[in-house]
Computed example of a mutant assay.
Amino acid sequence: MKNELVVLFGGGGFLGRYVAQALLAAGARVRVAQRDPRRAYFLKPLGGLGQTQFVAADVKRPESVARAIAGADAVVNLVGAFTDMQALHVGGARAIAEAARDAGVEAMVHVSAIGADPESASAYGRSKGEGEAAVRAAFPHATILRPSVVFGQEDEFTNRFAGMVALPIVPVLRGDARFQPVFVKDVADAAVTALADAKAYGGKLFELGGRDVMTLRQIYQLLARETGRTPHLLELPDALGGLLAALPGSPLTRDQWQMLQRDTVVADGADGFAALGITPTPLAAVAGTWLVRFRRHGRFAKRAAA
């Protein structure tokens, strides 16, 4: 990908910073496109002189998307949120794919999520599924990646739960819900691999899951061990969990509650990492490097026995 220009929508976000680093390491020129590009300026020192560009673009404004993509060789769409989902996941994805098509872009990667389904009970799953369909309609040879829950140093997953296990009692909703946590760097490598060989991977869909399938309860237990905590995990019945999710100010929205009703694991025989030649990184192998701050005495504390 040396010297190719890749436009990265959402490049300043959690996953975006890792995709940007992988692209820069591969020698690509990276144009980060987002509503406020100043929030992505931290990426500039990661590349060589002139290797990183920044442009203001709002995926809800197709004309700004087209300007951001002008002259690009490839496009990556990482835009995602738990608010305004229809506009971002469907309308935004369509605007990016149509602009990429009209600009003659050679390759596109669209990052979706496991559970994407136009018939999903959750608004998030429905919007992700409809977004995939919109991308396929406009740019049929786009590569679609569906990661499970993504973890890494800056995530809102392990860091949030690690803060919770510092409490003496931790309420657990749907403790048997299964996940296949995936390392953010592995997802970034998957995106760059797909872009680098659009002939082999274009038009295909890859579900990305980590090495281990874990229940939510097991994830809490692993984070407790990594941070030297011994909380009591209080499992709440489904009826109470659904009620709590419906209350104003609840840390879990009703839509997130709906998402917990379905396992977030790759389908049988759909190992996207294997197809892309990537060996996934286990959560237990790396989480301790950033969760050390949740230990009572920081890096000088001992981990709890397994």
Rank of each mutant, 00 (worst) to 15 (best):
residue 252 L to C: 02
residue 1 M to I: 10
residue 82 F to R: 11
residue 185 K to C: 11
residue 60 K to Y: 04
residue 4 E to I: 02
residue 275 A to L: 14
residue 239 A to S: 13
residue 301 A to C: 09
residue 127 S to K: 02
residue 106 E to G: 14
residue 276 L to V: 05
residue 116 A to S: 11
residue 204 K to R: 15
residue 201 Y to E: 03
residue 182 V to S: 14
residue 93 A to M: 07
residue 35 R to M: 06
residue 245 A to F: 04
residue 259 M to E: 15
residue 58 D to F: 11
residue 110 H to N: 13
residue 90 V to C: 14
residue 178 R to K: 15
residue 7 V to P: 08
residue 211 R to G: 11
residue 118 P to H: 06
residue 209 G to T: 03
residue 85 M to P: 13
residue 6 V to C: 04
residue 76 V to G: 01
residue 146 R to V: 01
residue 167 L to Y: 14
residue 162 A to G: 12
residue 209 G to D: 05
residue 52 T to C: 14
residue 178 R to Y: 06
residue 113 A to D: 07
residue 188 A to N: 03
residue 10 G to N: 08
residue 232 H to G: 10
residue 246 A to G: 09
residue 180 Q to F: 01
residue 21 Q to P: 06
residue 274 A to Q: 14
residue 161 F to K: 12
residue 155 D to V: 04
residue 246 A to E: 09
residue 57 A to G: 04
residue 118 P to Y: 08
residue 107 A to I: 02
residue 257 W to G: 09
residue 10 G to A: 13
residue 192 V to A: 02
residue 157 F to G: 02
residue 12 G to M: 06
residue 150 V to R: 08
residue 242 G to Y: 06
residue 137 A to V: 00
residue 122 S to E: 10
residue 192 V to C: 01
residue 201 Y to I: 02
residue 168 P to N: 02
residue 261 Q to C: 12
residue 220 Y to C: 11
residue 69 I to A: 02
residue 209 G to L: 11
residue 163 G to V: 14
residue 30 V to G: 05
residue 39 R to C: 04
residue 241 G to S: 04
residue 129 G to Q: 03
residue 8 L to G: 10
residue 267 A to D: 14
residue 287 A to D: 12
residue 274 A to W: 06
residue 89 H to Y: 05
residue 97 A to T: 01
residue 295 R to I: 12
residue 89 H to I: 00
residue 162 A to N: 00
residue 234 L to G: 07
residue 176 D to P: 06
residue 128 K to T: 00
residue 192 V to N: 02
